[in-house]
Design a protein around this nucleic acid. Structure first.
Lengths: 209, 209
DNA sequence: ACCTGTGAATAGTTTCACAGCT
DNA sequence: AGCTGTGAAACTATTCACAGGT
């Protein structure tokens, strides 16, 4: 751990990483921090500061080469090699995630699905391998899966997360409202619709008072 | 705007607000900041500081009354009266959100669904009212909807958000990878699975380097 | 003994302003 | 004229430490 990046910087760089891909697809070649700011909503000096935390990537006077900057960020944050993920919970939300088109081009691959309901394992139409929930730790280890997605009922969330951690997973995306306790070195990102509605609602109130 | 709460404080208080409901359902009556810390993963002094930003709510020596604290937070953040939300995009993700059980007891109510595909409006089985996408602004105004959920394709996201804003909505939950540009006073919360996977992946790398 | 509330100290992040290059 | 990279300043948030109450 030499010069650890601040978390907010990591988050913004990840957003830029995806944005740059979109820009490259549009055929653009170079871009300035000012233009990036207009597109992303972040201030231009924050973008420059974030990028320069990784080293020098632009050409003074000419801006950044889009492909080069994307590779530069991806390389520094370890985003270039594809990573394997698994999904626990094959209910409506889990099924929607499995069918989510964006995943295909994301650099992440869901390589296993788990559910405690054997019936679901048999009836779900999908090309990925499905296993019963008690196999989570073993399959994660066997397939060297690095990330887990939790789409189980809230009551089961902590236990399922524990099995993922036991298999060696260190990063979890948690779609349940449960709070996942975890050790240092493990990362959990919460995607709870009700919580986000609550926060947005409170922020609006703050703005208008 | 007297003593605006810091955004991180708002976010933590919203989490506590939900946590306190769960604790109340378990029949607990009072709780100390130390116990709340153990359950929520936040440090005890941060919890006390956050709560005291709103005023005094606990009894020194005895901790907080759970029901009272929940009402206190809810009242201060404007979370006690239910709020109306609408959902744009009735594909797989939108349908999963409509069927999401947690919504029923959340204090939020989805009162309208929109899609540009008329066929979906006719075939989706649901009790809420469905309308074509071009009616978004009018229906939002008519029904006094305050929050919007975006589950449309990324290409359509900004335009649909614009219609929601035009109808008076000031808070949006964005399930698409698109960046939603918005005016001050409007709040957007992004719930992009691929982005979160990327961030978690980068943070894990940070921890282990 | 255990608790809250809080001013003060610390740590972390963002913003500024400009040197230096194209 | 327009650009990046960056040290320094300004701002924001977290953590500490303890006074004072039960």
């Amino acid at each position: 751990m030499k010069n650890a990046l601040p978390d907010p910087t990591i988050e913004r760089l990840c957003s830029l990483f995806h944005l740059l891909e979109t820009l490259a697809e549009q055929g653009l070649v170079t871009i300035s921090s000012t233009r990036l700011a207009a597109i992303s909503g972040m201030p231009a000096h924050t973008i420059r500061k974030d990028i320069s935390c990784l080293g020098e990537a632009g050409r003074v006077g000419a801006g950044y080469d889009i492909q080069r900057l994307r590779a530069f960020i991806g390389n520094n944050l370890g985003l270039l090699q594809p990573r394997k993920a698994c999904l626990a919970g094959l209910g409506r939300i889990g099924a929607a995630i499995l069918a989510y088109e964006q995943m295909a081009t994301s650099g992440f691959e869901i390589v296993a699905g788990f559910d405690s309901n054997i019936n679901r394992l048999e009836t779900l139409r999908t090309t990925i391998d499905l296993y019963p929930a008690y196999e989570i730790a073993d399959r994660v280890r066997q397939k060297q899966i690095e990330l887990g997605i939790l789409a189980v009922p809230a009551e089961a969330a902590q236990e399922v997360a524990q099995r993922m951690f036991a298999g060696g997973i260190r990063g979890i995306i948690n779609f349940t409202p449960a709070i996942i306790s975890h050790a240092p070195g493990q990362a959990v990102s919460n995607m709870d619709l009700v919580r986000e509605l609550t926060i947005v609602s409170a922020k609006i109130k703050k703005y208008s008072s």
